[in-house]
């Protein structure tokens, strides 16, 4: 098994005719993902990469039974795209777009309330279940099918973590990038809940960073409900206070936002903390070795 995406995923691409949209659609198809439809308003009726393009999501879903959407729409229009996919009843939306205004996301979250759609991102690399399905912009080749779940606020740091795992022969069940924004659609807790009940996931790696309190919330969940070992790293120990470190959500505005506070919270509930970002793979290996002996 795996979480969120697998062989049964039928992907729709919002913004498929744009430069990034078409480039990554091609990469997803090459990885083996079933891309069944694209949506670009005004370009309905065309085909791109052998995929039919529709004017709106509702029509695309009606005709292709798409059950997941990936969004490559510019930031000013991305919130609208998320709500359109939600309205069409798509159960999983992965939003890649970086730079969506916070207030737009407040509205999106308000709209999502009471609906069964799950949003991953925005400002994220997406989701991959190695060997099965890739709904994202990550490099497929560095992944290896296996039993470690990875959930991260970062993109390229996750690539490095995955490469560390793969080079040690440790495969991944699913890797989820929840994104670097202040208001992600899904948090660490949301994804931990899924990994917790996934038969194929034995260990979960959390890659956090400064800003917000998502890591502390994860610690609460680990303490109360998590039945699997967790490995953690929190980036930004050296980040100065009050400065936005690239990601919109990566800014220390209070004590709780510091890496040291997050590490303390995760360590207190038994998560294995990697001593540095280059040893996340090794730390995971030690935990896995501990389970098998």
């Amino acid at each position: 098994m795996s979480i969120l995406v697998d062989k049964g995923t039928r992907l729709l691409v919002q913004g498929i005719t744009g430069g990034e949209g078409s480039f990554h659609t091609q990469r997803c198809i090459e990885y083996g993902t079933k891309v069944v439809a694209g949506v670009t308003p005004g370009k309905g009726g065309n085909q791109i990469l052998g995929v039919p393009v529709y004017n709106n999501v509702e029509r695309a879903v009606a005709e292709t039974e798409a059950n997941a959407s990936i969004i490559f729409v510019p930031p000013a229009f991305a919130a609208d795209a998320i709500m359109e996919a939600t309205d069409a009843g798509i159960p999983l939306i992965v939003c890649i777009t970086e730079g969506i205004p916070v207030m737009d996301m407040v509205k999106v979250h308000s709209y999502l309330k009471g609906k069964s759609t799950r949003l991953i991102g925005p400002n994220c690399p997406g989701v991959i279940s190695p060997g099965k399905c890739k709904v994202g912009i990550m490099v497929g080749e560095i992944h290896l099918p296996g039993n470690v779940g990875v959930v991260s606020r970062s993109g390229t740091l996750t690539y490095d973590v995955v490469a560390q795992l793969t080079s040690l022969g440790i495969g991944q069940s699913t890797c989820v990038g929840i994104g670097g924004d202040a208001l992600p659609g899904s948090t660490f807790v949301d994804v931990l809940k899924l990994f917790n009940v996934d038969n194929d996931t034995k260990v979960v790696v959390i890659v956090g960073e400064i800003g917000g309190t998502f890591e502390q919330e994860a610690a609460e969940f680990i303490k109360g409900e998590m039945t699997k070992p967790v490995v953690a790293f929190v980036a930004g120990s050296t980040a100065p206070s009050g400065k936005r470190m690239g990601h919109a959500g990566a800014i220390i505005t209070g004590i709780a936002g510091r890496a040291s506070e997050k590490i303390k919270a995760l360590s207190a509930v038994g998560a294995m903390i990697a001593p540095n970002p280059a040893e996340i793979g090794l730390t995971t290996k030690r935990v896995l070795d501990g389970i098998s002996t």
């Binding site: 390229t156 980036a235 690239g246 970002p277």
Partner: peptide
């Protein structure tokens, strides 16, 4: 990447140095 950039700075400190920038 922002997360990797922060992690690089952290790793430099871990190795006994310090970054001039992010």
């Amino acid at each position: 990447g922002a997360g990797l950039a922060m992690a690089v700075n952290d790793l430099i400190q871990y190795c006994g140095g310090s970054a001039a920038n992010f």
